[in-house]
């Protein structure tokens, strides 16, 4: 099953490599990983998407908790949460396809943020599923390049991951 693990980690050099190293050393898979400092400059918040059986996820959570730099974590899959990912996608356009691509972007609530004579760049946020769906929907057109941030998320309501 897919799990989104949200981690508060000391904002120290090397903290990221401890997490990445743990995953490679123990053979766990990382689908995506995003990290940035929080409003508290001593803390970073990391969001890690992984897949595994319940046993594997249990070990992943325990092993992450064991890292001295990890302050707190939660598996968003266990709680009601909001998930978002940002994607930038550059698509080749023909005069005949421009309107179609723009319309698709609108349907998915994306924005065209750069235009050249033969390309559009579309910015889109949403759940990873939604971004996948958009990519599939415009795959008949020529996709030049894609960059995605990987999922981030927050628990809804009062179930917050704070100190």
């Amino acid at each position: 099953m897919r799990h989104i693990i949200s981690i508060l980690i000391e904002n120290e050099s090397g903290a990221l490599s401890r997490v990445a190293g743990l995953f490679s050393a123990r053979g766990y898979n990382i689908e995506s990983l995003t990290v940035a400092p929080t409003d508290d400059v001593t803390l970073s918040r990391m969001t890690l998407v992984t897949r595994g059986s319940d046993d594997v996820i249990e070990q992943i959570v325990k092993q992450l908790n064991k890292l001295i730099d990890v302050v707190k974590l939660t598996d968003l899959a266990d709680v009601v949460h909001v998930e978002r990912e940002l994607m930038l996608i550059k698509v080749r356009t023909e005069p005949s396809s421009r309107a179609e691509i723009k319309r698709m972007a609108d349907i998915f609530r994306g924005k065209v943020i750069d235009v050249t004579s033969n390309s559009y760049m579309v910015e889109m946020t949403g759940s990873s599923d939604k971004l996948d769906a958009f990519v599939a929907a415009i795959s008949t057109h020529h996709i030049i390049e894609i960059v995605r941030t990987g999922a981030t998320g927050l628990p809804r309501g009062s179930g917050s991951l704070i100190l």
Partner: peptide, 14 residues
């Protein structure tokens, strides 16, 4: 050294 020992220490510091 911090990198080399990361998988075989409880923790390390530079």
């Amino acid at each position: 050294m911090v990198g080399i020992t990361r998988p075989c220490v409880k923790h390390n510091f530079l």
